[in-house]
Design a protein around this nucleic acid. Structure first.
Length: 642
DNA sequence: GTAGGACCGATGTCCACGAC
DNA sequence: GTCGTGGACATCGGTCCTAC
């Protein structure tokens, strides 16, 4: 098929053929006209070819130059496009995250409203469980009997109906719940609170030959039922102390969990140790985590050692390296620092102590975190401090590394136990807490004067932290926490036009028409409040845990292998102890290098120089680098602002 | 005495900046 | 645009220090 397309080669060939044809005709003409010799003709031809060669080379160079120019232009355009794509990707990544968050909030509100509506529908009902079905039963009479047993006013006044929920498939003896519908919510509440006060309703009270209990509960909606079911499972495994419902909402109570570990430098291995601590705190229910030998210095601010959801209070050693105490506690808890040892050159190598007051269930509880350096006797220090501090507290707890082996008789041990005894303090546990290649010792202690409050005590190895075991205890204090919700108004992203329109829409004519200045002020503030609420609505943000994206599967596997090897070493028979220790150390070093590599890989991508600078700096700030905004003092006088 | 971690100095690399 | 310079920073190896 004929085409109009002319390629570079075609053009080249055409030029060459016309040029050769021209030369040929010229030579033929000259031979014919002037009878020139063959020699001259050949020489002329050579000259013509040389010229042609030069022209071809020039042409080739031009051609290559053009190709290079086009190539570099294309490369520039491709780089520009790549950069645009990266920017767009980063921009939309942020937008999608925002949209997801907004959508999540809306879903949450819708679900919440849905549950509230359900709860409203059920608020006049109660469920009676544990009563066997009888084909000839009269549910209303049954309820009247229950009312009499609970010494409530006549059932007839209270309810509108009583019925079995699953009546169709029931046969005699089946235990099926009864649904009681009351006329008024207040009457239901009165009946229910009477039941809760007694809680001793049995089948025998209803004229049945059994001592099995009869339970009365609120009629929950499907969502609340699921929540209650899950909560009861947690109660069964000991993670919750009680589960109850009030107004259709499931409430739970949980014990307070506290732990202590000797960290031997909390930020060692370029913060990898701290990351392991963070991972443990986020995956376990720990309310107060105490660490001795934190080795922290003033160069580390609280933000760089922070853990999501926790506040930290610390007592760094300043006169030399080592030592130090750091306590992480849930930021929903109320904590006051009562005392801390001044770690100066004068107090070098003396006992370090941090005393904190927690308000738990209305009680003031004293927690003393102690680090006693080796070769120091802390008994006299503790006696002095406990004398001045314990008077104001009913419950006192001491945790820490006392560097006094309770498993080995010594003068130091006798003095320490004597000091404890004089304050009715009892140390918990009898297992070694520190393992080394030549043996083990019980150095880390939990001591209290309120034994009844300790529901559970134990210890667990934590090779990622140190060769000290982590000791922990569940205390009989309610540590139930409400989810942290932050309310805020967005004064940065707002619709300026809407603000202008809303301000203009204020009926200023009415304002000027008011003669009383007090009424004018009231009108003015009221209108401003409306504009404020409309243009800067109150938003809610739930805090989310920042995911630790370098904590990959490989890292977790390496840590798991290390931990298993550590357990192996600890429980190994004497003849293979050295071998097991060597294996553990190899796996420990491997875990460290895997962590380091994973961090490098993650941070390499996370802080790529090609990402937009705004996103880059946000990520840098999220890593805890830079000034802590919250700690910056406000120079403005509040009166002046008002 | 040993293990583990901090500290310190030497060295190399990268990058911003200015001169040409 | 290229080159030189200086500062900041990372890395490495040795040493010191602390805890046990």
């Amino acid at each position: 098929m004929a085409t109009n397309t002319t390629t570079v080669d075609d053009t080249n060939n055409n030029k060459q053929s016309s040029f050769v044809q021209g030369c040929q005709s010229s030579i033929d003409g000259r031979i014919g006209e002037n009878s020139m010799t063959l020699d001259i003709a050949v020489r002329m031809l050579m000259m013509q070819f040389t010229e042609m060669k030069l022209m071809l080379e020039t042409f080739r160079n031009d051609f290559n130059r053009k190709i290079d120019t086009i190539k570099s232009e294309l490369q520039g355009k491709v780089s520009g496009l790549q950069s645009d794509i990266t920017t767009l990707k980063a921009e939309y990544e942020g937008k999608f995250v925002n949209q997801d968050a907004t959508l999540g909030q809306i879903n949450h509100r819708v679900n919440h409203l849905h549950l509230n509506i359900d709860a409203l529908e059920n608020q006049k009902e109660l469920i009676i469980s544990g009563v066997p079905f009888a084909s000839d039963e009269d549910p209303d009479a049954l309820f009247a009997t229950i009312c009499r047993q609970l010494e409530c006013s006549g059932g007839e006044e209270l309810l509108t109906s009583t019925r079995r929920i699953h009546v169709n498939r029931l046969k005699d003896g089946d235990v099926s719940p009864l649904l009681v519908e009351f006329a008024l919510k207040t009457t239901r509440d009165r009946f229910y609170s009477t039941y809760l006060r007694r809680r001793d309703l049995k089948l025998r009270h209803l004229g049945m030959p059994s001592d099995r209990r009869v339970f009365i509960n609120e009629n929950l909606n499907a969502g609340a039922r699921e929540v209650k079911k899950a909560a009861l499972l947690l109660k069964k495994v000991g993670k919750l102390t009680s589960v109850f419902t009030k107004g259709g909402i499931v409430h739970v109570k949980r014990r307070l969990n506290i732990c202590h570990g000797n960290s031997q430098s909390l930020c060692a291995r370029k913060n990898s140790k701290l990351e392991e601590v963070r991972a443990v705190l986020s995956s376990h229910i720990v309310d107060i985590a105490c660490f001795t030998e934190s080795w922290l210095t003033a160069s580390r601010n609280n933000r760089s050692i922070g853990v999501q959801g926790y506040s930290v209070v610390r007592n760094d050693r300043v006169y030399k390296r080592g030592g130090g105490i750091a306590v992480y506690y849930r930021d929903t808890m109320s904590c006051t620092k009562i005392f801390n040892t001044e770690l100066t050159t004068e107090s070098a190598d003396k006992t370090e102590c941090l005393a904190l007051e927690f308000r738990l269930n209305g009680f003031k509880v004293l927690l003393l975190v102690v680090y006693n350096p080796p070769d120091n006797n802390c008994a006299s220090f503790l006696e002095e401090k406990l004398t001045s501090l314990t008077l104001h507290y009913e419950s006192v707890f001491l945790v820490g590394d006392f560097n006094t082996d309770l498993l080995q008789a010594s003068n130091k041990r006798t003095l320490l136990l004597s000091a404890f005894e004089s304050f009715s303090l009892v140390p918990y546990g009898c297992e070694p807490t520190h393992y080394h290649d030549t043996g083990c010792s019980q150095l880390d202690l939990l001591v209290t004067n309120d034994r009844d409050k300790i529901l559970r005590f134990g210890q667990v190895d934590f090779p990622g932290l140190s060769q000290h075991d982590l000791i922990y205890a569940s205390l009989d204090f309610d540590a139930t926490q409400t989810p942290t919700v932050n309310n805020y108004r967005d004064y940065v992203h707002f619709d300026a036009d809407a603000l202008k329109t809303a301000t203009i829409s204020i009926p200023w004519r009415n304002f000027y028409a008011i003669s009383d200045p007090n009424h004018s002020l009231e009108f003015f503030t009221e209108q401003l409040k409306i504009v404020h609420d409309t243009c800067f609505p109150l938003r809610t943000s739930s805090r989310r845990n920042a995911s630790n994206r370098w904590f990959t599967g490989d890292v977790q596997r390496a840590i798991l292998e290390r931990d298993l090897a550590y357990k192996d070493w600890r429980t190994a028979a004497p003849d293979v102890k050295d071998l097991k220790r060597h294996t553990y150390k190899t796996l420990r070093n491997r875990a460290n290098s895997v962590i380091e590599r994973a961090k490098k890989t993650f941070l390499g991508g996370h802080l790529d120089a090609n990402i937009p600078s705004k996103l880059l700096w946000t990520r840098v700030k999220n890593l805890g680098v830079g000034k802590d905004k919250s700690s910056q003092p406000c120079d403005h006088d509040p009166d002046e602002v008002n």
